[in-house]
Simulated assay, not measured.
Amino acid sequence: MSKFNIDNDAIRQLAELLDETNLTEIEVAAGDNKIRVARQGATYAAAPAPLAAAPVAAAAAPAAAASGGDVASHPGCVKSPMVGVVYFAPEPGAAPFITAGSTVAEGQTLMLIEAMKTFNPIRAPKAGKISQIIATDGNPVEYDEPLVIIE
């Protein structure tokens, strides 16, 4: 029987990220090691797999960006119109549609959300500057979840 170390801090950080982003589950992996945290009511469960703390640093960056108060009520908040997976580039390796600080025009594609094997463009409802990117590339989003802030 192999023994593995459970990184309680990593699990706590992922649980906090779930709260901040309103996701129902999140999984990070590095090689054969992975951590999966899922929300079931008000509790969190961790999958019994070998765990690593290294991926948490990458997952913590969106948490820091999202912690600026209630972004969902911000007048420039663009929310997800559907459940799916967010992609910030048209294909792997391509330049992203937007970056923090970039200027966008009304109707410009901000990102794609893949739902049922269909890539749906999410367009800017107004012109402005991207002040905050809340969603994380390649991760699932829920309906009405904040994606970006346009100032």
Rank of each mutant, 00 (worst) to 15 (best):
R39I: 00
V71Q: 04
Q13P: 00
I149L: 12
L110V: 06
P62H: 07
E91F: 06
A100L: 13
Y44Q: 02
H74D: 11
A42V: 08
V28F: 05
D137G: 06
T21V: 15
A95H: 01
P62I: 00
T43N: 06
D70M: 10
A52E: 03
A135W: 00
A38P: 04
P48H: 06
R12E: 09
D9W: 10
G76N: 05
A54C: 08
A105C: 08
A124G: 09
T99H: 13
T103Q: 15
V86G: 02
I130C: 03
P62Y: 02
A58L: 14
G128M: 05
A94H: 13
A72M: 06
Y87Q: 11
D144V: 02
A127W: 11
D7Y: 13
S2A: 06
S80E: 09
E27L: 10
P92S: 11
A124V: 07
G69M: 10
F88M: 14
M1G: 14
E106K: 15
P90V: 14
T109W: 04
A54K: 10
A30G: 05
A57H: 04
A59G: 08
S73R: 11
A94V: 01
E16K: 10
G107F: 05
A95C: 04
N139L: 01
I35Q: 05
L110E: 07
E106F: 12
T118P: 04
A57I: 01
I26H: 00
P81C: 08
I149A: 05
P146N: 02
I35C: 07
L112A: 01
P55V: 15
R12S: 09
D32T: 15
M82E: 06
D144T: 01
V141H: 04
V78C: 03
A115P: 04
A135P: 02
N5V: 14
E16C: 10
A42L: 09
A65R: 07
S67V: 08
P90D: 15
E114T: 03
E27Q: 15
V37A: 02
A46M: 07
C77P: 00
M82D: 06
M116D: 00
G84R: 02
G138T: 13
A127L: 05
L110R: 12
M116C: 06
N120E: 03
P55Y: 12
L18S: 00
I113V: 14
F119E: 00
A105L: 13
Y143P: 15
H74L: 04
V37K: 07
T103A: 13
G128Y: 05
V78G: 01
V28G: 03
L23N: 07
A49Y: 14
A29L: 11
T136E: 06
S2K: 08
S131V: 15
G84E: 02
A124S: 13
G69Y: 10
L110C: 10
V104E: 05
G93S: 09
P50L: 03
E142R: 00
G41F: 00
T21G: 14
V85A: 08
A65F: 00
A135N: 03
S67G: 13
A135G: 05
P92G: 07
D9G: 09
A115D: 04
F119I: 04
P125K: 02
T118C: 10
G84V: 04
E20G: 03
T118Y: 08
A63N: 01
E151R: 01
K79V: 11
P50N: 04
S2P: 11
S73V: 11
Y87H: 14
E27P: 02
E20T: 01
A47F: 09
